[in-house]
Nucleic acid binder design. Structure first.
Length: 878
RNA sequence: GCCGGAGUGGCGAAAUUGGUAUACGCACCAGACUCAAAAUCUGGCGGGGGCAACCCCAUGUCGGUUCGAGUCCGACCUCCGGCACCA
C-alpha cells in the first residue's frame, strides 16, 4: 500500500474492484427501502463535457449517500443515441451513423468509468438498438390504437440549416433549438401524439409533485400548457348562413366589441376570397407571407390588417360589426378569430388606434360606475384591462365582471350562440421526422386498406443497413426500396412503409422505465419491476429540459398508466436542475478579434488584494477577461479527461461539488481544483500517520474518562455528521465539503499524536477518522475506499464490507460550555462563557457582571434585558 | 412589455431561517523548513481610526417593523433567466 496520495493508481484499483464485485448492481430486494437515482442520459457525441461531469457527480453523490444510509439504490445510465449529429457525421465524413454512434459510446463509457461513477452497467441501454426502439414502436402502436397517434397535414417548422422539421418546442422563439438559425414553415403530412388530451392532467397533477420540483420548472410547465378559461361566442355573418366563432376570456366586455378580427388563414376568409377586393386579397397574402418569414423576437411586429367588407352581428346587442383580417390573430390558437374590444384589451386598443376604429368603454371601476350610466362612452387614453362593473351593456349594467362572465356565458349557451370553453397553448406533439437516424414509425400504406399499423409480432421495424444520407431533407428511408416496398399486413397486397422516423424525444420519454428490465423481450418492462422501483425518487439534469423532455416524459407516464403498465400519475417525485458550467475566456483587447487564450497561456497581473489588473498573452497581447458558457469556438472548454489525468477523478468531482451551490452557475477555475487535491492529500496524510495505531485501536473508549482534546474532537465529529447529513438530505453539496474540511482542520489542531495518545484519544481519533472517511465517499469515493481499507486492514470495499453512514449522537455533539454574545442595544459588546442550558436569569446575571458590560452601562439605565437561551443576552439601555 | 430569481470581501461562497456577518476554499502577503525552489507547516487577510485595550462604518440604494434585520415589509436601482401578439 502506497503512503503517498497517487490518484491514478487508487482510482484504477477501485474501479476494477467495484466492477469485479458487482458493487453497484441492483436487484429488487424487499428487505431494504428502494431508491431510484436517475440522471439525464447523455447524447453520445463522443466527448464528455464538464456539464456532464457536474450532472453525474451530483447524482453519484446522492446514490452513494443513499447506499450508505441503507437504501437499495438503483443508479443506471444509458445513451440517447438517436439524433442528428450521427447523420451530420454521415453526410460530412461518409461514416455509417451506427458505427459512429457505437464508437462514441465506447469512448464516452470509458470516460464515465474513469470518473468512477457508481452505475449499474448491467442495465445500460442505447436508444438506437432494435431491442430498445422496438418498444418506441410498440408504444406508438398502442397510442395509434387508443386514438392518441394520428396523422394530419400541417405546416411544420422547418430549419433550412439543419434540413429538419422541428416541434413547436424545438422551434421556440422562431429559432432552431439546435443551431439557433431562423425557422421557416413547410407543409407536410405529419404524425402527432395527442398530448392535448392530457393537458388538464399535466397541469393539475403538478400540485402533487410541486414540493419536490424547482419552482421555475413548475412555472414554465404551467406557462407552456397555458390553460385559459373563457367562452366561445358565435357571430352570424350578415347576408349569409355562415357564422364566425370567437374565443374570449372576457365575454363581459362584449358590448364594447367594435369588430371581429380573423386570422388571415381563417376558413371564413379563404372561403370568401372571391368576394374581396384586390386590395383586401393583397393584404391577406401579405400577412400570410410575413407570418411565414422567420420571426425576429427582438422587434415587436406592428399591427396590420384590413376591413374585408364582411359584417357580423353581435348576438348580445344585435349591433353590426365589420369583419377585419388582422396580423395579430393566430389561426393556431383559440378559434382563429377574436372579438376586438379596444377599450379593454391592449392589442385591440393598439389596432383600433391605428385604424381609427371606435373605442367604447363598457367596464368601469366600481366607484365610477354610476357616472357612466349617465354619460356617453368616453375615449380612453389607455385600455382598462382590469375587471370591474359593466356599463353601457343594456340589461347587464351594474353587474360585476365575474358575475357577468358566468351569466352571459349561460345566456349564450341557452340561446345557442355560445358555450363555456377552455383553450390551451399546448399543442399536440408532432413526432414525424424526415430523418434516417431514429425509430421508424411502424405504419404501412396500402392502396386497398389505407393506413395500416404494423402488427406487434412484426416489430421491430428495423432500420436498413445502408441508406443514402444526403442531408437534403427527404427521408432517406424512401430511397431504400427493400425497406420502402413491403406487403400490406392486412391484404398482403403491395404496400409502402412510412418513411419518417420518430422525434428523439420519444426515446427519452420512457427510457428510465427500460432500465428496470432492460432485456425484456416480451414487453417494454415488467409491471412488478416497475412497481418496485418507480416512481423515480430523484432526477437530476439541466434545466434546458424543463419543458420539452419533462412534459413528454410526464405525458408518456400517463399513457402507460392508462395502458396498465404503471399505477401512478407522476413518474418523478423530486427533480433537481443543476446550473451551467462556465469558463474563463481571454479576448484580444486591441483587435477584439477572435483570438482566444486558455488560462495556461495567460499571465495575470493582480493588485495586492488579488484583483485582476491586467492579463497578457504569451505573445504580449493585452487580453480582456470574460466569463462565458464553455464552448469549442470560444476555446474556454475544459476536457474532463485531462482533469482526471492531471488531478484525478476524485479531486475533479470534489471541486465540482464544492465550488458552488448545485443550482448556481459554476465558474471553472483550475486553481480551485488544486485546492480539492490539497484537501484530499491532507486527509490522506492524517490517516496514514495514524494507520497502524488505528488498526489496533478500538472505537470504544470504554469507561476511561475523555481528555479535553478527545471530547472536543468528538464534539466536532458529531456536529459535522449532522451538518453533512442534513446538507445531503436537502441536496446541498458545497456546504458538507466545507464541514468536512473543518473537521480535518480540527483533527490536525487537536494535536494528538499516535505515540502519545491516551486510550480515549485513540478511540476519539478512530471514530472521527472513520466518520470522515465514510462521509467523504459520496464526494471522493476512490480516496475514501482506499483510506477505509487502510484503517480496517481489508480490501473488500465499503459496499461488500457493509459500511454505513456514521450515526449522529447529539449527546456527543453538545458542549458543556457555550459562548454567549452580549449585546447592548443590539450591538455586540462582549462575549461570555456559560454552561450549556443555563437558565435565562443566570445568563443575565453573568452578562451584567461582565467587566466590559459594567463599564459600558455604568452611567445608563437598563430598560430591558432580552435573553436568547444558549445564544445571546441583549441589554437595552437608555 | 409581462412573469420569475438574485445582488454579502479581490474571487467562488457561508450564516442554525429574526439572534455573535464574512465559516470553508481560491487568490494574495509574511514567517518557518531548505543552499535554493517546489511541497508542507504557522500566521495575516472587509473598510477606516488608535501605541493599545478598543471604537466607528459595512450584506445594491432609501425608508419601515423589531430589544435585535443579510434574513421580514414598502419603494427604487442593477444584473441574470423565462415568455412574448395566447384573445
Amino acid at each position: 500500500m502506497d503512503e503517498k496520495y497517487f490518484a491514478k493508481k487508487i482510482e484504477a484499483k477501485w474501479q476494477k474492484k467495484w466492477a469485479e464485485s458487482g458493487a453497484f448492481a441492483a436487484s429488487e430486494d424487499g428487505s431494504k427501502p428502494k431508491y431510484y437515482q436517475l440522471e439525464m442520459l447523455p447524447y453520445p457525441s463522443g466527448n464528455l463535457h464538464m456539464g456532464h461531469v457536474r450532472n453525474y457527480s451530483v447524482g453519484d453523490a446522492v446514490a452513494w449517500f443513499k447506499r450508505l444510509k441503507g437504501f437499495n439504490v438503483l443508479h443506471p445510465i444509458g445513451w440517447d443515441s438517436f439524433g442528428q449529429p450521427a447523420e451530420d457525421a454521415a453526410v460530412k465524413r461518409g461514416v455509417n451513423p451506427r458505427d459512429w454512434t457505437e464508437e462514441n459510446i465506447v469512448s464516452m463509457r470509458g470516460q464515465l468509468q474513469r470518473l468512477g461513477l457508481s452505475y449499474d452497467w448491467s442495465r445500460e441501454i442505447a436508444a438506437h438498438r432494435p431491442e430498445y426502439y422496438k418498444w418506441d414502436q410498440w408504444f406508438f402502436l398502442k397510442m395509434f390504437e387508443m386514438g392518441l397517434a394520428y396523422k394530419r397535414k400541417t405546416q411544420v417548422n422547418w430549419c433550412e440549416h439543419d434540413q429538419a422539421t422541428l416541434s413547436n418546442e424545438q422551434a421556440s422563439g422562431g429559432l432552431c433549438w439546435r443551431c439557433g438559425n431562423p425557422v421557416t414553415k413547410k407543409e407536410l403530412e405529419q404524425w402527432f401524439l395527442k398530448t392535448t388530451a392530457y393537458a388538464d392532467q399535466l397541469l393539475d397533477d403538478m400540485a402533487a409533485i410541486e414540493s419536490g420540483w424547482p419552482a421555475h420548472v413548475i412555472k414554465r410547465q404551467r406557462d407552456w400548457i397555458g390553460r385559459s378559461e373563457g367562452a366561445f361566442v358565435d357571430f352570424k355573418v350578415k347576408d349569409s348562413e355562415e357564422k364566425v366563432r370567437v374565443f374570449t376570456t372576457r365575454i363581459d366586455t362584449i358590448y364594447g366589441a367594435n369588430a371581429i378580427v380573423a386570422a388571415a388563414e381563417h376558413p371564413l376568409i379563404s372561403a370568401n376570397k372571391a368576394e374581396f377586393s384586390t386590395e383586401v386579397n393583397a393584404k391577406i397574402d401579405e400577412i400570410i407571407t410575413e407570418r411565414n418569414k422567420p420571426t425576429d423576437r427582438e422587434t415587436e411586429i406592428e399591427k396590420d390588417g384590413i376591413d374585408t367588407g364582411l359584417k357580423a352581428i353581435n348576438p348580445f346587442s344585435g349591433e353590426e360589426l365589420p369583419i377585419w383580417v388582422g396580423n395579430y390573430v393566430m389561426m393556431e390558437y383559440g378559434t382563429g378569430a377574436v372579438m376586438s374590444v379596444p377599450a379593454h384589451d391592449e392589442r385591440d386598443f393598439e389596432f383600433a388606434k391605428k385604424f381609427e376604429l371606435p373605442i367604447r368603454q363598457v367596464i368601469s371601476e366600481p366607484h365610477l360606475a354610476h357616472e357612466h350610466h349617465t354619460m356617453h362612452a368616453l375615449a380612453l387614453e389607455v385600455p382598462f384591462t382590469d375587471k370591474g362593473v359593466l356599463v353601457h351593456s343594456d340589461f347587464w349594467n351594474g353587474k360585476t365582471s365575474e358575475d357577468a362572465k358566468s351569466e352571459m356565458t349561460k345566456h349564450a349557451a341557452v340561446h345557442g350562440f355560445g358555450e363555456a370553453a377552455t383553450t390551451y397553448r399546448l399543442r399536440d406533439w408532432g413526432v414525424s421526422r424526415q430523418r434516417f437516424w431514429g425509430s421508424p414509425i411502424p405504419i404501412v400504406y396500402c392502396d386497398a386498406c389505407g393506413t395500416v399499423p404494423v402488427p406487434i409480432e412484426e416489430l421491430p421495424v428495423e432500420l436498413p443497413e445502408n441508406a443514402p444520407i444526403t442531408g437534403t431533407g427527404e427521408s432517406p428511408l424512401a430511397k431504400v426500396s427493400e425497406f420502402f416496398n413491403t406487403k400490406c399486413p392486412k391484404c398482403s397486397g403491395p404496400a409502402t412503409r412510412e418513411t419518417d422516423t420518430m422525434d428523439t424525444f420519444v426515446d427519452s420519454s420512457w427510457y428510465f422505465f427500460r432500465y428496470l428490465d432492460p432485456n425484456n423481450a416480451e414487453k417494454p418492462f415488467d409491471n412488478t419491476k416497475a412497481a418496485y422501483w418507480t416512481p423515480v425518487d430523484q432526477y437530476i439534469g439541466g434545466d434546458d429540459h424543463a419543458v420539452m423532455h419533462l412534459i413528454y416524459a410526464r405525458f408518456w407516464s400517463k399513457v402507460m398508466r392508462d395502458i396498465g403498465l404503471v399505477e401512478f400519475d407522476e413518474p418523478v417525485h423530486r427533480l433537481l436542475t443543476q446550473g451551467m458550467v462556465v469558463g474563463e475566456t481571454f479576448y484580444d483587447d486591441s483587435t477584439g478579434k477572435r483570438k482566444y487564450f486558455s488560462q495556461v497561456d495567460v499571465t495575470i497581473e493582480r493588485d495586492e488584494k488579488g484583483k485582476i489588473i491586467s492579463a497578457t498573452g504569451t505573445d504580449g497581447t493585452v487580453l480582456k477577461h470574460a466569463i462565458e458558457r464553455m464552448s469549442k469556438s470560444k476555446g474556454n472548454g475544459v476536457d474532463p479527461d485531462e482533469m482526471v489525468e492531471i488531478y484525478g477523478a476524485d479531486a475533479t468531482r470534489l471541486f465540482v461539488l464544492f465550488a458552488a451551490p448545485v443550482d448556481n452557475e459554476l465558474v471553472w477555475h483550475e486553481a480551485g481544483i488544486e485546492g480539492a487535491v490539497r484537501f484530499l492529500q491532507r486527509v490522506w496524510r492524517f490517516v496514514f500517520k495514524w494507520r497502524d495505531t488505528l488498526r489496533s485501536a478500538t472505537r470504544d473508549a470504554g469507561t476511561e474518562e475523555l481528555t479535553p482534546a478527545a471530547k472536543k474532537l468528538l464534539q466536532k465529529t458529531h456536529q459535522t455528521i449532522k451538518r453533512v447529513e442534513d446538507a445531503l438530505d436537502t441536496l446541498q453539496f458545497n456546504t458538507p465539503v466545507a464541514a468536512m474540511m473543518e473537521l480535518t482542520n480540527s483533527l490536525y489542531e487537536a494535536q494528538i499524536e499516535p505515540e502519545a495518545a491516551t486510550g480515549s484519544e485513540k478511540a476519539a481519533v478512530h471514530e472521527s477518522v472513520n466518520a470522515l472517511i465514510t462521509m467523504l465517499t459520496p464526494f471522493a469515493p476512490h480516496t475514501a475506499e482506499e483510506l477505509f481499507s487502510a484503517i480496517h486492514g481489508s480490501d473488500e470495499g465499503m459496499i461488500v464490507g457493509g459500511a454505513k453512514f456514521p450515526v449522529y449522537r447529539s449527546e456527543l455533539a453538545a458542549s458543556d460550555e457555550i459562548e454567549i454574545a452580549v449585546q447592548i442595544n443590539g450591538k455586540l459588546r462582549s462575549r461570555i462563557s456559560a454552561p450549556a442550558g443555563a437558565a435565562n436569569a443566570e445568563l443575565e446575571r453573568l452578562a451584567m457582571a461582565d467587566p466590559k458590560i459594567v463599564e459600558h452601562i455604568s452611567d445608563q439605565t437598563v430598560v430591558k434585558v432580552v435573553v436568547v437561551p444558549n445564544r445571546l443576552v441583549n441589554i437595552v439601555v437608555r
